[in-house]
Design a protein around this nucleic acid. Sequence first.
DNA 1: ATCCTCCCCTAC
DNA 2: TAAGGTAGGGGAGGAT
Length: 972
Amino acid sequence: MEVMRQTETDLNIGKENIQSPMMHDHLQITDTQDESVNHAHISTGEQESQSFLQSEESLSSSQSQSQSQSQSQLQGNTEVEIRQLKRTRKDLFFLGITVQVNGYTDPCSDTIMRTLHKHGGNLEKYETANVTHIIAEALSTAKAKIYKRQKKPIPVVRPSWIVDCVEAQRLLPHADYLLDEVKEQNTSASVKSFFQKKNDAGSELGERSESIHLYEKEEEEKENVREKIPNQDQNMNMNMNDTNHSDEQNSRIQEPATMLHNQLIHNDICNDDDAVQSDASSHFLQSHNTVTSASTSGATDSPSIPDPKPKDSIQVHTEKPSSPSKKLSFPGGPRNVGTDPYFLESYFATSRLSFIGSFKQRLGKNNVNEPRAAAARSADAERFVFHIDMDCFFAAIALRNFPQFRGKPVAVGHSWCGYPAIVKGNIGTSSFSDADSGRKSKSNAELSTCNYEARKYGVKKGMWLARARELCPELVVLPYDYDGYEDAAKKTAGILETYAAKYSGTVEQRSCDESYIELYLVRTGIGNRILEPNDFAHHLGENIRKEIFSAIQCTVSIGIADNKLLSKLGTNKVKDGGGNGVHLIVNKAALLDDLELKDLEGIGYRLNQKLLSHHLRYVRDVLNMENPKQEICGIIGSGNGSKIYNYCCGIDTRPVEIAERKTIGAECNYGVRFDGPYGVDYMMEGLAKEVQKRMTTVGVLARHITIKVKERRQGAGPPGKFNGHGKCNDHSKSAYLPGNCVIRDAEAIFREGMKLFKEIAIHKDQVRGMGIVMSKLENEVANEDRSGLSTWLRSGNRASTLTITDNTPSAEKETARDQEDTNREESSKRDVYNLSSRRDNSSVNQIEVIAEHTRSDYEEDIIVLDLPERRVEESQHECSQAGKHLGHGRIGKNMPSIRSNLQKKKKNSNSSKLFRQKTTVVKSDGRYRQYDVKCMLKLASIKSGEDKLSYEGGQVSLTQLDSLPLDIQLQV
DNA sequence: ATCCTCCCCTAC
DNA sequence: TAAGGTAGGGGAGGAT
Ligand SMILES: Nc1ccn([C@H]2C[C@H](O)[C@@H](COP(=O)(O)OP(=O)(O)OP(=O)(O)O)O2)c(=O)n1
Ligand SMILES: [Mg+2]
Ligand SMILES: [Mg+2]
């Protein structure tokens, strides 16, 4: 049955952001920031003054360095910082240089601006205190007089200075380039005076041994590509000969438009095929690389243009051209999923949401809980949960790449304005009304995040550029750097892991910029003092903060408490003060009392509206009710209600752990228009391939598939965003795979996906988005030896799955997952929705039912099956298989048929323990395994009356059994 | 009563 | 132009 619901999905409405009342928080940043920094500073000072350190100290090195850097990081560049940057970043030879262009120049001021930005400099449209040089071809005598008369004359230099510096790749003395009209100026003073002006922090930096590894790639190929891209940034065509040098302009930093093709060409050349390999650190763009190198293997120079085919509502597969198409089928037309065979790949390679959404996949198969001997911690150790979150993560990385913009309002986004993606804002407000900028004055590009300077203006994460510009005209937009995020996340996780290992704890990476760690601490001597656990926790927090800063030059905020909820609230507290600090929750009641409900994790826009409509705004409003739990359950549902009620009390029982993944998928709701030669099936195929790749990197197979479709809503106007989905109705349809088998194969995913798509029955012209989600996952088998059923039987590998006929490679185990989170000050969703007046269930506050097998269920099953001699105590094996696939890695929750048998017996056993949490002891002699196979095959045969034994038609049962090892056959 | 599907909501 | 994904928790309502 198809259910269709009206949802407001147009970003215009649903996702665009309003200025939330939270914005005032940021108006105070300048005031509070110093305070927070001071606070941090003081506590370090204490620690260091007593510096005969115990081993705990060894975890934090170079404290004072990072300390002082942290401070300046929030404020802008200090002289020392600039100097250091100049040392480590030879390409930023314009660091500290700010020019103002006077009159017409060659190259033009726009070009000069880009060149400066690229090499660390800046350009201001008007003469400000920052300007170190004026660039001009000539000066009118009047102007020359004015300049000469200044107390501290700013050197007026010919533009060729810039050109020559670039040529030389270093800062040349400007003396030779001074305009004759103002020649008697002092030539050396200016840069120095600039530094002095800027340097207000007076921090002292030690040498940092570590160099910043950015920009490792050549950019050679980039140039080739540029010419081919229509709509190319013409500014780069200047003859400044700037392109042979290796610098930051390489593929590691995202660039609009050209990025994709750059990658394509690059892969033609490099033909790197480390592609899908389970390299856990694989770069985000790899998805792109992979497909490209695969498809380009032979013919680089025979761009076959796909032949457009006539289509009906379902189109026929269209072959991808054998090499990256240099043209679209409709050159110049809109680039979308129907016209550009590479659209999906480039989309996944450049979408920030896809990047953050799929981040955990890239942690790989081995991202599982580290078994940590509980015995290692002393019985009286106190449990602490730390929450560590980067400050303005993407913006912080961007500022590492473009340090000349420190201290200015900066955001991160794809920009319409080619490299270096600096938007007009940075050359002055008035330019926005220029004819030039008029053409794109309204950009609906989304900004992923922004720094605190920008937040002072009310700019929010996820805000559209145009809106942000209204609030902050001088906003600078910097490009994405996915490799940089990946690298920073990796280094941070490594640091946290050392703490976890040391204090018998656990790390749970929650997202690319955020982790929880759980540590068990006792009273500890530091220096000549004894720290109580609380103080020691705070001390470690400071150490972590500093260690992360010295590793990646990014500031973090850390909250510490006794559960996840409160630790995250602690982090928020730090961020309210400007970030870069540690907050230990000592008085949770006080914290919660003043808290607004919407600042609790899990209360987003909708739930907040519901609560507000019942006059519930603060946590205390809830607690002051007669019957808080009942009432709140009545408003937001029983599950939500009891969770939130507990949160209001400061109770949160979520463990810090890496949870088992439940689903994996890929979708695209951007640029979906089937008005070109490539149809629904082509997109489905692309999604299926993507999904297969992802399943491979996390090492799972699935027995259930869901297709999601966005359908343009009747009467919907044009989307708010170019190529966007606009207002849509959402549909989804799911099914178990035929024969209830597990798969990962793109072919099969595609085939089943198309079936479901057809069942949803939406005309292709109305489709605005599609996605595939695979669920009921099982871990793949440990190694590739598939013939080895008996190998598998004997293997001691815990969670694994054997696929008999599926020809998919295998490897190890499985991956990560995610939990819940807090939304503190994100731009809130707009209303426009009439809050679903769907009858609120006056639900009887029921206790959440744990819909998992319990141990006794399992035991009963075993007994029923009459399978002898095996003790069940530690087994987590489940006989969930029918059909040709045998697996026992994961415990399926909802097996149809078989499962219902199993679940019937639930009832009386109410060990609330989740079945899945049981540890498994598998003998390596294979006997348990064998037992499992018997169990499974037995179930399979029981079931075979109504179920197929094979995937997609081939009713093979017995024939297939023939290919099984003899001992198994015998058992059957 | 509980399961199952198709959503909605939330967070990054 | 711009790249509006991904995953988990949970609720409604029909099926069993
Ligand atoms: N709507 C959003 C939210 C987040 N992000 C990305 C950019 C962020 O840098 C990163 C981490 O999200 P956070 O919520 O932690 O935001 P920030 O780290 O940027 O800021 P804060 O200092 O508030 O943590 O995820 C995004 O692209 N779009
Ligand atoms: Mg953050
Ligand atoms: Mg975060």
